[in-house]
Design a binder for these strands. Structure first.
Lengths: 170, 170
DNA sequence: TCGTATTGCTTCGAATTCGAAGCAGTAAGG
DNA sequence: CCTTACTGCTTCGAATTCGAAGCAATACGA
């Protein structure tokens, strides 16, 4: 509760580097996906997640949980994918209000088109610049962070410390 | 040139964890900034960058270079900030076509309002869950990645390996 | 069983984003 | 000096994003 008001250089460095690295990586990946398969990053994430599933299908909600994404945005993207014939959407069998999204053969095809380039980008930007030890260290620390972030609901991240706004509009 | 077609678990783990961690962190920070100062993340980045500058001002282009952002998007956000009185925009002195953006006192005020909560979020999500060694390791590896990414223009990231698209629309 | 709350998804409107095109101002070549 | 290319920024239109509200199906309490 009595921590210094700012962050020390190491802390700041980790934060800024994380933001910048992920931003640049994502940018590059997005470009590659658009070039190779006309997919947005989110669309690729959805297809890839479906491809991982044993039967190539999943409920909307389960898809949303994996991809940090609003429900309405997911609906929008699923519509686009369906329009292109990459997935099908049918009402769930046991629960009439849920929607089951399923990867089509065309969807698997696009995924196959896009994968090699995707891997090449990740390799070029993330894997190759690091030694094996560094990569393992990175994976370990980030995995730990991911677990701790998942564990705590985002709501309680910064519960206190709120300063009264200075000059809010209106 | 003859690397395996896929990524091994460590490589995949680092990649996925990086994406997920940065995404969650960014989401949480965005929420905090909106709550405490009605700022988007980009707006905060712009204000913070100006705050770092000795005279609190900077050219549009220099701002864009720091924040991964399109020029038109920067113009849009700068307009919003100017409308709220957080920055001023005046034509550059020596080069008539450039625009110098300057932080106002109100801008500094909002920055001050927002900072404590911002630091609290970063601390809670990124710093506190890790040991000092882990944090240093993370900062080191990410810094290395950032440098290597900066060095190579994104264009050449995946120059080869392009598979002919499978079923492109139209 | 009935009434109410909850869940899963979609629709709607507003805000943000980007790329392409446009518009000065500046530099370079003759 | 004039023409041409380039730079810095803005405007424009289209696409994407989100939150709030809406709708249908399901779960729950009495």
């Amino acid at each position: 509760m009595d921590q210094p008001a700012s962050l020390d250089p190491t802390e700041l460095g980790a934060y800024f580097a994380l933001i910048e690295v992920s931003s640049l990586l994502r940018h590059t990946v997005e470009q590659q996906l658009k070039d190779d398969g006309d997919l947005s990053y989110v669309q690729f994430q959805l297809l890839a997640r479906l491809g991982d599933s044993p039967d190539g299908s999943s409920r909307m909600t389960d898809l949303a949980d994996g991809v940090v994404y609003s429900r309405s945005g997911l609906t929008y993207q699923a519509q686009l994918l369906e329009r292109r014939g990459l997935v099908t959407r049918v009402p769930g069998r046991d629960d009439e209000r849920s929607v089951t999204v399923t990867l089509t053969d065309a969807g698997r095809g696009v995924l196959a088109d896009v994968f090699p380039g995707h891997i090449a980008v990740v390799r070029a930007l993330l894997v190759d610049p690091l030694s094996r030890d560094e990569l393992q260290s990175l994976a370990g620390v980030l995995g730990q962070l991911r677990d701790s972030m998942r564990a705590s609901p985002p709501r309680s991240a910064a519960p206190r410390l709120r300063t009264p706004p200075h000059a809010r509009g209106s």
